[in-house]
Design a protein around this nucleic acid. Structure first.
Lengths: 176, 176
DNA sequence: CCGAATATCTCGACGGGCGAGATAGCCGGC
DNA sequence: GCCGGCTATCTCGCCCGTCGAGATATTCGG
């Protein structure tokens, strides 16, 4: 799970450092994915459900409740899948559907009590661990980390959009 | 997609910084997931297939080819799913099965040409972007980032294991 | 009021994942 | 040598999340 690099490992210390950070980031992403999956499974959900729940909470906390359509864009799901997803979450008591009074075609998604509790339960212990690590860094060091992660995050998002813009190639079979 | 926090945002600058980094990390993980998913879809794979491919490459580059069993542990898949997974990847020409000559129950997984090419295609542009960001940081700054990410990564892995150790609760329905 | 556009939902098909059981190969004791 | 238990992988039937085409409801401009 480490050290694949693109074999870009150079001999100078800086090159090595870059390879290590690359591996750190990859490991972190993979583990984050596993954490989400494991937590979701633990509560009878799947990864998508958890993502959706977080998206709904984020939107609502930002004072701008999300609609099924926008949720589908964010999670990259088809409209049919989104409906099924919302059905699941609503049936489980995590979220609630509300018709938009202004445009009655739209549905506004709000989290219900159980959803809020679950999200809290997800983030709270994670936050504790996070805080414990952060405590070992000075303000200046955290500032560097923030600058780094913010730039990485932006770069990665660009990359994602570039890939999504590309056309999926026709399914290939066997030896092609 | 930002600012859910656990509402732990304190008023002091350091507290704010911590919240921001938390958000950075979360955004990064989510986007990394999307990048993987999008890239996989672009090449007619699914997310699991891509993870498996990377795991196979990692193991082989480390000089210790992975077996279906260990792959299943790493991806948290059942044995049946692993067999199906390997079938898919082999059929698509990404990997190859080899019986272990010492213990003939075991299968050793090696990547085939197409698999190597695909992994390269995945990591190369990602590496370019990564390098471009890293170029804007000094050696000392990168050292801080590395220390931070390594600790975060370890902490997250512990968290994952803790969750996995917990018993899945019985599936709940409707209002319970 | 009509027609085009938008938002969501319905439904049939597909495919990945699960898990119990089958199969093949290893190893220690006798 | 061979029997029994163990391990590694595979087979198979089932479940459920996703897709995508089409249906339905609502808005808005003319």
């Amino acid at each position: 799970m480490a050290g694949h690099g693109t074999d870009r490992r150079r001999d100078d210390p800086r090159g090595r450092m870059i390879s290590e950070i690359t591996d750190d980031l990859r490991r972190y992403s993979v583990d984050a994915q596993h954490v989400g999956h494991a937590f979701a499974a633990l509560h009878g959900l799947n990864a998508t459900d958890l993502h959706a729940l977080i998206a709904v909470m984020d939107a609502e906390l930002a004072g701008d409740p999300i609609t099924p359509g926008r949720l589908g864009e964010q999670l990259n799901l088809s409209s049919g899948s989104v409906t099924a997803l919302i059905d699941r979450l609503e049936r489980a008591g995590h979220i609630r559907r509300d018709r938009d009074t202004a445009d009655r075609r739209k549905i506004l998604l709000h989290y219900a009590d159980r959803g809020a509790a679950l999200a809290m339960e997800f983030f709270q212990p994670l936050g504790s661990r996070t805080d414990r690590v952060m405590a070992r860094f000075t303000d200046e060091e955290l500032a560097v980390v923030h600058r780094f992660m913010a730039e990485m995050s932006a770069s990665l998002r660009e990359h994602r959009d570039a890939i999504r813009a590309a056309r999926p190639e026709p399914p290939r079979r066997a030896v092609d």
